[in-house]
Design a protein around this nucleic acid. Sequence first.
DNA 1: ACAAAAGTGTTCTCCCTACACCCATGG
DNA 2: CCATGGGTGTAGGGAGAACACTTTTGT
Lengths: 226, 226
Amino acid sequence: MIRQNIKIAVDAVVFGYKDKALNVLLIKRDIEPFKDSWALPGGLVLEDESLEQAVERELKEETNVTVDYMEQLYSFGKPNRDPRNRVVSVTYFALVKPEHHDIKADTDAKDVAWFDVQDLPDLTFDHKTILEKAKGRLRSKLTYEPIGFDLLDDKFLFSDLEKLYMTILEKQIDRRNFRKKILSFNILEELDEKVSEGRGRPANLFKFNKKQYFKHQKEGFLFDIK
Amino acid sequence: MIRQNIKIAVDAVVFGYKDKALNVLLIKRDIEPFKDSWALPGGLVLEDESLEQAVERELKEETNVTVDYMEQLYSFGKPNRDPRNRVVSVTYFALVKPEHHDIKADTDAKDVAWFDVQDLPDLTFDHKTILEKAKGRLRSKLTYEPIGFDLLDDKFLFSDLEKLYMTILEKQIDRRNFRKKILSFNILEELDEKVSEGRGRPANLFKFNKKQYFKHQKEGFLFDIK
DNA sequence: ACAAAAGTGTTCTCCCTACACCCATGG
DNA sequence: CCATGGGTGTAGGGAGAACACTTTTGT
């Protein structure tokens, strides 16, 4: 077998919807290179763990977050993306409900924070590229899978869902058509709770019924929002 | 930096459309482990080449094929997928026009051949899983990007395009609606050449106009076949 | 009473679908 | 002249898009 000294790492782009904006979880590095710079959470894969286990471990260690939804994003392997050795990074795309998690810096991280994707600090390595790829994945996935609910609280307002779609897809959405469309899928439960957001008419809370979704999906139903 | 001895490889799933069927390019291994078994072309990445260069080099070495279309598929990294060392494989999805290539076994390969995906030999490692993933990507991609043309000869019959879609999507397609739809995209040139396939009325040849496609795409046009 | 946000229905257009007959050639 | 595959049009239904007024609450 030929000699090869390439390291393999994992990095995670963790999105959360917070303060009516799309946020991403970043850590402030506590080790060289790029100590004190902001970066995506991640690190080298251990000999006997799977890639998924590696991401989950690194996320837990560096940020104290456990994700609700995760999938592989893309692998980055240009020879000089890391100044030390050559490192190939398998990146993951994850969604969490920020209010469910107490973020906390620990191993290798000096700080952790949510950043509005519209207002990001400089990122190390090629992490900006990775983040852009993840944004693209989120945008397209939002239209054909009900992953928006993994970003919202369990109980949410219809207007929140609508704002989430408008924020991420970066376009205006007609309230009536959107509501009609989503309700026609029969994957939401309308709760008997109302919430008043300070002013205006109180709004009804909704809940995503994942079981219903899987059931409809098995019967050939396709989630699809333009 | 922690000790880590994981190797990184690339593997390619190369599809070609041949004899009215979807084919995949396989090699018969000439080295252990699994010498003499059929596998996807691929191998370890060299220190100073990018992942894409690695795939292209391995493909050239093992099969003599240069691809027309290639994109990253997925990375596989379970700890025991290779019996020797731990190997993480970044896999690629590629399309070629089989009639443009003279396949030829060379380095590490004792034989190369096209196999109808409906009639495959046993594959080594987790290559069956990789192939399934690639089939899924091909199916979905075919519906929202004009990649079918990368599988057909430059000049092709409408009926070939139609058969290709029916074969890969595994469903019947209405000839009139399909033709109407594709033609409405204005991305085909109808040539003044007719071809007689033995019997029946001679058919017109068509050519995919990539420039037109890119132009329309820039103007917001979306390729979309149900 | 007014400001703010929630909730709701109809019409029009366009695209998808279903469907059947004639045409050009070779044998 | 017959068998084989190529080429074409139309009508009906359904889904998306556009669009504005009423309701409920807090102040």
